[in-house]
């Protein structure tokens, strides 16, 4: 639907359009800045380094989960299993706290379980061409069910979140820099590098842009997609560990509430749900925007219901403005 093709092009609009399409991070950072300024006006003095640290800390798990959505959406997919997998990873690690291998074993087991879930999803999507929405939805039922079973089976239900996860998830160096950046920065660098500089990244874009053309050009798309969903599940598992540390809770539904915001963060960040267009830089800013917005609505003293309504309305508004400017169908 290229309805705008016939309209008269205005140079100014064209420049904006190109800016949004090619460098979505720039206008998004502008939006983020506006939100921070509104925050400062709403509650003078609140914006300081400590506050920024807390916002960053809150945004890290969301940004990692939004990374799962960005990568899968680039190929035209989506990953609805990230919530269940993230919760499972945090929960399993907590229950294995007092086992022989301790924390290391817990983390290894939970990430292995996450990778296995991703492998099954990847086989379903890549080899059997199951719609990603269905495959990941089914996988979220499977993981949640098995996590519930594990909850009943595990003896040490009283075990808490391991100290090391709490330090990484919720600690602030000099009360400003969140420790979770130790986990996040390498992940961010890896995703940005993969998408921009490696053949695998280009394959993700190619498959999302035109799967048939990609296949005819010799891309083994089933292998690419299989690996993609394993990566996505592993990222979700890591996000779950950080989240468990940040909130000091381990439950089988801990990360469920982050699934929808993670999709929203990727969309606001300029990644197209139809595939082939987007990037992780925008997604990170998108996650920050959602986190600041949520904090702002709390500072404004809005009750929880109103907060939800405004939150949803703003997601629609931003996505609509975005679609309007980039003239995507």
């Amino acid at each position: 639907m290229s309805a705008t093709a016939g309209t008269v092009r205005q140079p100014a609009l064209d420049t904006t359009r190109r800016l949004f399409r090619d460098r979505p991070v720039v206008p998004l950072i502008g939006l983020l800045a506006i939100l921070v300024i509104v925050m400062e006006i709403a509650s003078p003095g609140i914006v300081n380094p400590g506050w920024a640290g807390v916002i960053l800390r809150t945004a890290v798990p969301l940004a990692i989960l939004a990374g799962c959505q960005t990568l899968t959406m680039l190929t035209g997919g989506i990953d609805l299993s990230v919530g269940a997998i993230a919760s499972m990873a945090g929960f399993v690690t907590a229950t294995l706290l007092h086992s022989e291998g301790g924390v290391a074993q817990g983390i290894a087991v939970s990430l292995a379980a996450a990778a296995l879930a991703g492998l099954v999803t990847g086989i379903a999507v890549g080899v059997f061409r199951v719609h990603p929405l269905i495959a990941t939805l089914g996988m979220s039922f499977i993981v949640l069910g098995l996590a519930n079973v594990w909850q009943l089976q595990s003896v040490q239900t009283g075990a808490g979140v391991p100290d090391i996860l709490r330090t990484i998830g919720s600690g602030l160096e000099l009360e400003v820099i969140p420790n979770s950046l130790v986990v996040f920065v390498p992940i961010m660098a890896l995703i940005l590098f993969t998408l921009r500089r490696t053949g695998y990244g280009r394959l993700l874009f190619a498959i999302g842009d035109n799967p048939v053309a990609a296949r005819l050009s010799g891309a083994r798309s089933w292998q690419v997609i299989l690996v993609l969903y394993v990566i996505s599940a592993l990222l979700a598992g890591i996000a779950g560990l950080v989240l468990a540390g940040a909130t000091n809770t381990a439950s089988v539904s801990l990360a469920d509430s982050l699934v929808l915001p993670s999709v929203a963060a990727a969309v606001i960040g300029g990644t197209s749900i139809f595939g082939g267009r987007g990037g992780y830089g925008g997604t990170i800013v998108g996650a920050l925007i959602l986190t600041v917005l949520s904090a702002l609505l709390t500072v404004l003293g809005l009750p929880e219901p109103t907060k939800q309504i405004v939150f949803g309305a703003i997601i629609v508004a931003v996505a609509a403005a975005y679609t309007r400017v980039t003239a995507e169908s």
Partner: peptide, 22 residues
């Protein structure tokens, strides 16, 4: 808005749930 269905209804799920809580 011409925003994909999945995004609009996802966002509206927050809105309707918020009204339900109101």
């Amino acid at each position: 808005t011409r925003v994909p269905d999945i995004i609009v209804t996802l966002a509206m799920s927050f809105v309707w749930a918020g009204f339900a809580l109101l």
